[in-house]
């Protein structure tokens, strides 16, 4: 079992998975609490469109993924603020539009490009040392910013108008959160893939949500669950020769359903009913 840890690529993938698991689950807490779940999905597809365009025109994929991701979250943020349309509708439109762009870019490419599909489905076992370095640096930046502004982020997740009213620069913090969501998605693209990154953001946080009534506990639980699932998923993937993205996500999903069954919140409701 442990001899596989001797391989360089295995060490890299475990480190990448653990990092992505941590950063996704921390940002996920704020995404779940602030009700931005859909934005995560929309951003992932936009970022993937960026990757596809990069391969089409021969540019490095990461910067374009960041540009596409940021553009999507900011547009969504403006839409939410103006509140003209229900958010799920506007995101639904953006989400399909960016997916259409991605398909268009792929269609314009000559021949089959396996690397592009790596970003769609995730391939943590093929993370290169350079990619790992980028993942580590970006994750540290995202986690550092989240930690620095955690009290403001909690406040806007709880009640943005109240936060604004009591002297927190709530709008700016909201856009900061959106920016961090986009960066997190980009960081995770290579590891879990555009389709599944959404699950990595959502599942650990919503599992933790089932388990506690305290904000600080929720974050701690989410990180433990996120890292454990990511690492466990990579081990499963290697051991049984499964694709890594689905292994991570399905492991997390299983734990989510267990938590729903065992949730103290749920039990209380049954008792009082």
């Amino acid at each position: 079992m442990f001899e596989m840890l001797a391989y360089d690529f295995m060490q890299r993938s475990l480190l990448a998975a653990a990092t992505v698991g941590a950063v996704c689950s921390v940002i996920g807490v704020f995404v779940v609490l602030r009700g931005l779940a859909f934005i995560g999905a929309g951003t992932a597809h936009a970022a993937f469109a960026g990757v596809a365009l990069a391969y089409l025109v021969g540019l490095p994929p990461l910067p374009l993924a960041i540009v596409f991701g940021l553009a999507t979250v900011w547009v969504t943020g403006v839409m939410e603020e103006q509140g003209r349309m229900k958010l799920d509708v506007s995101i639904g439109i953006l989400y399909t539009a960016t997916m259409a762009l991605a398909i268009l870019f792929i269609g314009l490419m000559k021949g089959y490009n396996a690397e592009v599909y790596g970003y769609l489905f995730g391939s943590v076992l093929s993370v290169t040392p350079d990619e790992l370095r980028v993942i580590l640096v970006l994750s540290m930046v995202v986690l550092g910013v989240l930690l620095t502004f955690s009290k403001e982020l909690y406040f806007i997740a709880f009640d943005q108008e109240m936060a604004e009213a009591s002297g927190v620069p709530a709008r700016r913090i909201f856009y900061l959160l959106l920016t961090l969501v986009a960066l997190t998605v980009v960081v995770s693209l290579k590891t879990v893939g555009a389709i599944l990154v959404f699950a990595m953001i959502l599942i650990p946080a919503s599992t933790a949500y089932q388990l506690t009534h305290s904000l600080s506990h929720m974050t701690a639980y989410a990180v433990v669950i996120g890292v454990a699932c990511a690492v466990g998923g990579v081990l499963l993937s290697y051991g049984w020769d499964l694709p890594s993205g689905p292994a991570i996500v399905l492991l997390a999903t299983t734990i989510f359903f267990l938590s729903v069954l065992l949730s103290p919140k749920r039990r209380r409701r049954v008792q009082t009913a």
């Binding site: 609490l33 909690y154 709880f158 949500y209 506690t212 009534h213 305290s214 904000l215 600080s216 506990h217 929720m218 919140k265």
Partner: peptide, 8 residues
Amino acid sequence: NFPITVLE
């Protein structure tokens, strides 16, 4: 269901 305590 928002997870927050009184003190928080």
